[in-house]
């Protein structure tokens, strides 16, 4: 039932521009859905660390931002809009950066890990801000070409929407696959008891580093998609606000679940984009929602619903 529902939901999402034409404001809704989907990928990538491996990174925007810049800069410098080239550049740069930062961070745990990732992300932010020749500095990088794939263009909103949703599908599939695999369970082992994992013969630092690099690469993918969606990248995409955003999405939605980060991204973007034009102080609303979850529902929306469902079934 659950897999069928997920596939049905996914197909409905994928074909949204095709069947929503009659609904008022459907173009705007397509844009919102696209951005929710980009952020869902970003939140899913962070959840690999926070939810699965128990690594509370507060610097994930470093990889989101570097992916966005890499896609934009590769496209400009190599004078190509070919998806395979620009996306590969985004993945390569964010993964390489995650490898370097990860090597320096995975020795630390808990609050120290959190502070270290935050510090390194601030360095990446500073580079984006000051390396004006390459990044455009504080003005950001505008007019980014949307990618082509073979002969297919994505300059039309519907085409880009489809690209984003397809990538989202692939990333979700990967995360789902990992969660069932030996690799995914080993990450949970590290989260629950790293000392015992070492005593069992697992090289836990290497394992954590691998998760850090994978999560960084996937955040880079989300960053590239955002660069194409907004056709704009700025240092803020590597800034602390962007890092916190992913963290909030994961916690509100439910860490360590597949659906949680997706729901979290949806809720945060809904408050940020839709509610903000309807009511004043929507950021404060987001803050209150976040605090409410931290205080009353640590497992997030999805985790709490699941627990409630288990109780009802009994």
């Amino acid at each position: 039932m659950a897999p069928l529902a997920s596939i049905g939901f996914y197909l409905a999402l994928l074909t949204f521009p095709d069947w929503s034409g009659a609904i008022e404001g459907s173009r705007y809704m397509t844009t919102i859905l696209r951005d929710m989907t980009v952020f869902a990928i970003y939140a899913l990538s962070l959840d690999l660390l926070v939810g699965r491996a128990g690594m509370p990174s507060l610097g994930h925007a470093a990889f989101y931002g570097s992916g966005a810049y890499a896609a934009a800069i590769a496209s400009q410098r190599l004078a190509t809009s070919e998806l395979t080239v620009t996306l590969a550049a985004a993945i390569a740069v964010s993964a390489a950066l995650a490898l370097v930062i990860g090597l320096l961070c995975v020795r630390a745990t808990g609050i120290f890990f959190l502070m270290l990732t935050l510090a390194f992300a601030q360095m990446v932010f500073a580079v984006a801000f000051q390396w004006t020749d390459v990044t455009g500095g504080s003005n950001g990088f505008a007019g980014i070409a949307r990618p082509t794939f073979g002969g297919l263009e994505t300059s039309a909103p519907e085409a880009l929407y489809r690209l984003v949703v397809i990538v989202f599908g692939l990333v979700s599939l990967l995360i789902w696959w990992i969660s069932r695999s030996h690799y995914g369970r080993a990450l949970v082992g590290v989260r629950e008891n790293e000392r015992r994992m070492r005593a069992l013969g697992y090289h836990t630092r290497r394992l954590k580093l691998s998760a850090f690099v994978l999560a960084g690469a996937l955040a880079g993918v989300a960053g590239a998609l955002s660069a194409w969606s907004f056709r704009f990248v700025s240092p803020n995409d590597a800034g602390i606000g962007r890092s916190v955003e992913a963290f909030v999405m994961v916690l509100i939605g439910g860490a360590g679940t597949l659906l949680g980060p997706i729901v979290g991204a949806g809720v945060v973007l809904y408050i940020d984009r839709v509610l903000s034009s309807a009511i004043p102080f929507s950021q404060a609303v987001l803050g209150v929602v976040f605090v409410a979850f931290v205080l009353a529902a640590r497992q997030g929306i999805v985790g709490s619903l699941r627990a409630a469902l288990v109780r009802v079934r009994r």
């Binding site: 695999s181 030996h182 990450l187 629950e192 069992l200």
Partner: peptide
């Protein structure tokens, strides 16, 4: 005790069994 608290007894043991082959396997656990 150094256990994996939220995991089942079976999964606690399975993590020990799986250690020999290493964690870098995308094949299905459980």
């Amino acid at each position: 005790n150094e256990l994996f608290e939220p995991l089942t007894a079976r999964e606690n043991v399975a993590l020990a069994l799986a250690a020999a082959k290493g964690p870098y396997r995308l094949s299905r656990a459980r």
